[in-house]
Design a protein around this nucleic acid. Structure first.
Lengths: 252, 252
DNA sequence: CGCCAGTTTGATTTGTGTCAATAAGCGTGG
DNA sequence: CCACGCTTATTGACACAAATCAAACTGGCG
């Protein structure tokens, strides 16, 4: 397990273990980066009434499937999820990776059925939040409503970043950008920004970045030779953060 | 002007001229594909109170600029708009084209400043909808709230389609897909699905599709030679819809 | 221990980019 | 209305990054 904590923030207390599904939003160690961050204690109580803590998912298990009825959005509590859609010729397009504290499934709202599928990349604990109930709740909680709009808006801007990445950047730049993104998201959860384990395969990385497995592998090798990374299968150590950042060639 | 109407739907009456900015949502000929579609007469009155009908935009005029404070989302009433973000090395990434009845600017919600810029591709009439007011309104109108969530969700799924297109499809497939998209959106507005004028330049098309101008030009030439299209500068006639659809190689 | 999926590395091909030159539109002003 | 100049579009020749094809290696799991 690669969940060694790098730094413990002064105002965050880690109370619950990763896959415990009896945890409440109130006590969840992610409540400062997940939906609860927008709510006061009273509202949080209301939210907790509708959030469902399902049992842990096994690796490769499907959370939801494209074109099935949309009921809930999902918050990752532990583990990692990949979202993907299937093209008409049967290939898969990975549209995103989701880590603890992040929300997925919002693409299902517009047509009332999921526009993508989601699969656990490793053992994972997930909170399901029934959308109808959430919607009703948000009518009475301006903060929650605003937060939901913001979450969806953020999903849009992140998709736009990926579009730009796919459209304008070289293989090396794309890989560097993904690694930086994972590094940042780890840091936000007080995990190491420089040493982590990739939960996804090379195939998934390539698929996400619009590249082949072979190219991903070669980029990793090149970066290792250049001294930017140390790569040991899925274990990544960023040796030269500056170089990686420069190699990403991206604002933000 | 290329706004010849192909077919007039039985339940849609075209009351107002394109660039008239005194039109109300109530009488706007787009009210069946824009925000009003979700509202009853009473709610519509409320909406109209907050919608601002600004004066027509000239070609190349900016509607909003990246990183400026976010105030409103915008509905296109006539003309066409391109949205784009600027990469850190100064290049432009076109993230979308917006036609009458379509909403843009929702990427600004998450950070309270615009994540992209928007520029008129031709003379255009725009409605500005102040977001704070819209938000407040939507707390009291479940239909409106739902509709806004759906609009944002649709933006997400459309970005995912573009991601897939950029990641998996050839130059020919990308161009075919864009033409089909424009064709469908024209049809929705009761304009010709087979004969239309592209409001954007080849540069913009290439930029949007992650290709160079030269490639766009070559693809058009190829498709013309194959008898799929007739291309006369920005004027496009789809001669073989089946072939184009097949060439797009995309579900949906 | 042995198998199979995942990963790495090498040789070759190919689609699209780049560079360059010409042609066609389009707005401006005489 | 035409002439001019500038922007946009087309077409060709060549270069190159990443895909493809192929083969060997690794590691995790039954």
């Amino acid at each position: 397990m690669s969940m060694h904590l790098a730094k413990v923030s002064e105002d965050t207390i880690f109370r619950s273990c990763d896959h415990d599904y009896k945890v409440t939003c109130d006590t969840c160690r992610l409540n400062r980066i997940c939906i609860p961050l927008a709510l006061n204690a009273k509202d949080l109580e209301q939210l907790e009434k509708i959030v469902q803590h399902t049992k842990p998912m096994q690796k490769n298990e499907l959370l939801y499937r494209e074109n099935t009825p949309f009921q809930s959005i999902y918050a990752v509590r532990s583990g990692a999820i990949k979202a993907f859609r299937t093209t008409n010729d049967g290939r898969e397009q990975v549209t995103g990776f989701y880590f603890p504290g992040e929300i997925l499934g919002m693409d299902g709202i517009s047509e009332d059925r999921h526009a993508s599928s989601a699969r656990a990349l490793e053992t994972a604990a997930i909170c399901a939040i029934p959308f109808n109930a959430l919607e009703k709740l948000s009518s009475t909680m301006p903060n929650l409503q605003r937060h939901l709009f913001q979450l969806m808006s953020r999903e849009i801007t992140e998709d736009q970043l990926l579009i730009t990445l796919l459209s304008k950047n070289s293989a090396d730049e794309r890989v560097a950008t993904l690694l930086l993104s994972i590094s940042r998201r780890n840091a936000r959860r007080h995990l190491s920004a420089t040493h982590f384990r990739l939960p996804m395969s090379r195939v998934d990385i390539g698929n996400y970045l619009g590249l082949t497995v072979e190219t991903i592998s070669r980029v990793f090798s090149r970066m290792q030779k250049a001294g930017t990374l140390r790569v040991d299968n899925k274990e990544i150590e960023i040796m030269d953060y500056e170089a990686l950042h420069h190699g990403a060639n991206l604002s933000n």
